[in-house]
Design a protein around this nucleic acid. Sequence first.
DNA 1: GCCGTTTTCGGCCCGACTGTTTTCAGTCG
Length: 585
Amino acid sequence: MPQANEMVAALLQEYADLLQIAGGDQFRARNYERAAKSVAGYSGDVALLDAATLRQIPGVGTSIATKIIQFQQTGTIAALEDLRATVPGGVREMTRIPALGPKRALQLYRELGISSVAELSAAIDEGRLRDLRGFGPKSEDKLKHGIELARSLHQRVPLNVASDVAERIVAAISAVPGCERCEHAGSLRRFRETIGDVDILAAASDSGPLMQAIIELPGVTEVIAHGDTKTSVRISTGHPAQGGGIQVDLRVVPLECWGAALQYFTGSQAHNVAIREIAVRKKLKLSEYGLFQAETGDLIVSGTEEAVYRRLGLEWVPPPLRENTGEVQAALRGDLPVLVQVGDVRGDLHTHTNLTDGVGTLGEMVGVATARGYEYFAVTDHAPNLFMQRMTLEKMLSQRDQLRGLEARLAGDGDPVMTLLHGTELNIGADGTVDWPAEILAGFDVCVASVHSHFDQPRAEMTRRFLRACENPEVNIIGHPSARRIGKRPPVDVDFAELFRACAATGTALEINASPGRLDLPSDHIKAARDAGVKFSIDTDAHATGHLDFVRYGVGTAQRGWLSTDDVINTWPLDRLREFLRKGG
DNA sequence: GCCGTTTTCGGCCCGACTGTTTTCAGTCG
């Protein structure tokens, strides 16, 4: 996402939060929130747009367009500055505490002058909340616990960690007698890059045994809520980095409601609000129990998601698109993209072996790739300029011989089972040059080039660096383009619009790195890149055989960017891929 | 503040769970 979009989105979100705390019209607040999300997901650079164009963004009208123009000119929004003066930032921070929303945060501020999490913590210890209307001993405990959680534990977890938890729970709940169906929903089903809590949906006529089963699961550290049809627990992830565990919500509905319930629990909230508004306009009512006639309350449909969408006049919307950033309008027009699927991927174009920093041998990596049924597979170990990997020309050439021999053995007497491509992951130096002279590079089937150092270059220098790599006739794919590590390292400061233009012009693909710690190119840039004519390669960057399975997270990320197979070079047949890899040369 | 397949004004999604409230408000998703 362009840098300005990110800043504007953050300011609009802050404005929405502060409006909500300050009270008044909550629909205004909700609209600012919607505008914030739309701006974040918008493919153009809002720093460059005039008011008329800004108003094309869903949720942006006259007033917000004016505020964005003001941001362009002054770098800030006056109305937001005013609001900040009314509601201290610390009060906004306080609403991050579970069970403390805008109303009670404001009450704490108004009646006790509490304006930070630290002050709240102290006030609880001093017993100052005791006389406050609406605050009893349970609230006190909850807030205290919530502060602890917010401080140390409650972080979003990577996609693969949440996936593992979900699979474990779905298996356990499915095994409970009486469970007729069980699947994960929520942001995990939408393939968001990190997951706040895991939503599990089950169908059963008697919810009791399922409600009981989840609180008895191994690893449950806390029961947050426990009702007839909904239970929330905190459960350990089994990954040491997420010591606090993750919240899991289990919801049980009758099997007849499955479609409506799955639709509801998949979200996003903004998407659901948008389609429920469509229902209301048609004199219908949509809830997790089904689509009903508003007046009579008669059930119309509820069995499948497809039926619910169809009755509302929409195509079924694939979960990764459900963010209310244009997919509802596209579904109404019958104009949704045919998204790339995991089964469309014919091969991985970025993998490592133990020749450099992988842990699998060439034979092991190729073996697992064969088992996946790939048509082609590239081995792309690091090149010499990443000195710690100790790569040499001799090692590289010897690997190539080994790879050719392996391929011949795979083929036996007949046609090759899988074509092996010999590649490399080059290092894009600070000046944009890469390892090895051109004549050596020409010997590779595929060259990935990535930034591994000098992450802090200023934008102009960083952009020149990327452009030079794209213009290199031997470079086919820019690896993990933003170089971010989710939750650990921010993206580099590159002019993405410039980069996209260069990629499209030179026939250089951008990688969608499927490693759950990267997911890079991030999905909010993908649509903009596609609109600029860029092609993509969904790669795992596998450093072990087990990592080849991460391709599903890469495909999910590509889906969030609205990509079809035509956009993704490693879904293409080998001859079309080879044509692309020649870069027109 | 936005928006239009009844609308340029009058709407704006819906339900579960919790705590403290004797009938419901706040929070969450």
